[in-house]
């Protein structure tokens, strides 16, 4: 889409963009900057210049353990979400499916419900069942939270795809299942991976859910950060956070790759 802006708007536009950029980026700059300070407390601009906070984090096995936990649950959660979201999107993207709007809204519900309410609900439910939240309960909860993101991107991608592709494949002898596997899904795979990356980052960064649902023996990275911050704020936290930013940037690079470059002959 080409936006033609009138002159005053054209002048304001860059200013607004710059303001947003500053607003978004400056906390990151501060955060990363404080990780290099030689002081034992957070300060910006950093006093001196050292990598010792980073080496300390990388050598501390509790950080590594927490990171590994986060990685595992984020991966398991977003993959489990895919198992639900992909078939749902396949059905919901078809035209003329009854109650598809209602079901779409339901799938989107986890975005709208405040996270803390959701977790409390989950905990109360386990209470009613008279059981402690199981290990995999954490993965399950993260899957619920991330399903909307994968479903959304998949529904968008699938409903943009020419329905003629599936029909063409079937007219050439393919079964519906075969048409989906060989023709439809390969043409939405880029969208899927961007949805998956988004879900992964969200699950990885999630604090509230593991805080309530995982026992102290199973700290995730955000929980570990939260606990350390609770009693002292050292530049170690900044170092961890900086590393997290790097991970997020790497994953997001995949996510942001424009799915529309997956050329669909429409």
């Amino acid at each position: 889409m080409i936006l033609r802006l009138r002159r005053p708007t054209r002048l304001i536009f860059p200013v607004v963009v710059a303001a947003i950029m500053v607003f978004l980026v400056s906390p990151l700059v501060v955060l990363v900057g404080t990780a290099f300070t030689t002081t034992s407390y957070l300060t910006f601009p950093p006093k001196g210049w050292t990598l010792s906070w980073f080496t300390q984090v990388l050598q501390d096995p509790t950080w590594g353990y927490a990171a590994l936990n986060s990685l595992v649950i984020a991966a398991a959660g977003s993959l489990l979400a895919s198992v639900v979201a992909i078939p749902a999107a396949v059905v919901l993207s078809r035209r003329g499916v009854r109650a598809s709007n209602t079901v779409t809204t339901l799938i989107m519900a986890p975005i709208m419900v405040p996270g803390i309410m959701f977790v409390l609900g989950v905990m109360l439910s386990y209470n009613r069942l008279d059981m402690a939240p199981p290990q995999w309960g954490l993965v399950l909860a993260l899957a619920v939270l991330t399903t909307p993101y994968i479903a959304r991107t998949m529904i968008a991608a699938l409903s943009q795809l020419d329905p003629g592709l599936e029909e063409a494949a079937m007219s050439l002898g393919a079964s519906r299942a075969r048409a989906w596997v060989q023709i439809v899904l390969p043409n939405v795979s880029k969208s899927y991976f961007s949805g998956l990356a988004l879900a992964f980052i969200l699950a990885f960064d999630e604090l509230v859910v593991p805080l309530f649902l995982a026992g102290p023996s199973f700290p995730t990275l955000p929980v570990r950060i939260y606990r350390s911050v609770a009693f002292d704020v050292s530049p170690e936290i900044s170092a961890v956070s900086s590393l997290l930013v790097v991970v997020a940037v790497v994953v997001a690079t995949f996510a942001v790759r424009d799915p529309s470059t997956a050329k669909t002959a429409r």
Binding site: D162, G164, L165, A168, I183, N187, A262, K263, T264, A265
Partner: peptide, 12 residues
Amino acid sequence: GIVFQNYALFPH
């Protein structure tokens, strides 16, 4: 055999 208006060629 069917030939579609918008061709419906498999893009990939």
